[in-house]
Amino acid sequence: MAKFEVGDLVKINEDKIGFVGWNKNKCMNLKEEDGYLGIDLLTDTMGFTAPVKEDECTKSSIKEVINWWREKSEETEKRLRQAYIAKSEFDKLQGENKTLKELLRIYL
């Protein structure tokens, strides 16, 4: 008998967490006893991964998913802040460049 049921929240590796979507697949001729799962990912690619060996999975929790999303959100916010700072510095340099060109035109 499979140790994970459809709907269980499981963790694969360190960064992939998802719900078990199937534990038998007639199309691939996999039975529940074969120990393979199809997992609907909540993290990483947000896709579906299959077949995954049941031994590679551990129970997970919604808290782990929330922590993963929090980390990804913080990374995204940090990149956005850096992009905003880079854009404002670029705009400042463009203004200085325009002023220097004007001064050179007047000088020459």
Rank of each mutant, 00 (worst) to 15 (best):
D15M: 10
I12K: 14
S88A: 08
S73G: 07
E89R: 15
E77L: 13
E33A: 00
Y36R: 00
D15W: 09
K101E: 03
K59C: 10
I106N: 05
K101G: 03
I106F: 04
F90L: 07
D40K: 04
V52C: 05
E5Q: 05
N13L: 14
D55V: 14
L30E: 03
G95N: 14
N97G: 07
K53C: 05
Y36T: 10
I66W: 09
K11G: 08
L30I: 12
L41Y: 02
R105V: 03
I12Q: 09
T49M: 08
L80W: 13
S73M: 10
K26M: 07
F48H: 00
R70F: 02
E5M: 03
I66L: 14
L100R: 04
A83L: 15
K78P: 06
Y36E: 01
E14Y: 09
G95R: 15
E89V: 13
K59L: 15
E77R: 15
D15I: 03
D44W: 09
L30T: 04
L100D: 03
F4E: 00
K101H: 11
T99Y: 08
Y107C: 09
E96G: 02
S61T: 08
A86S: 07
V10E: 01
G38Q: 12
K31P: 00
S73D: 10
E64M: 01
D34E: 02
F4Y: 07
K98G: 05
E75G: 05
L42S: 01
D8S: 11
W69S: 03
R70Q: 12
C57P: 05
W22Y: 11
T76C: 08
Q94L: 15
A2E: 11
L37K: 11
L104A: 12
C27P: 04
K16H: 12
D34R: 00
Y84F: 11
E96Y: 10
C57S: 05
G47K: 08
R81E: 04
V65I: 01
L41G: 00
Y84G: 04
S61P: 00
D44F: 07
K63N: 09
L80M: 13
S73Y: 12
S73E: 14
K26Q: 14
L80I: 02
D55W: 15
K63C: 06
L108H: 11
L80S: 00
L108I: 13
L104D: 14
I62S: 04
R79Y: 02
S61G: 07
I12H: 04
D15A: 08
E77N: 05
K16Q: 13
T49E: 14
Y107G: 01
E74Q: 06
I106E: 03
Q82N: 11
E33Y: 06
N13W: 12
I12N: 10
L103A: 01
A2W: 11
K24N: 04
M1F: 02
L103D: 12
W69F: 13
W68A: 02
N97Q: 15
R81P: 00
T99M: 09
A2G: 06
N29S: 03
T99I: 02
I85D: 07
R81L: 10
G7F: 04
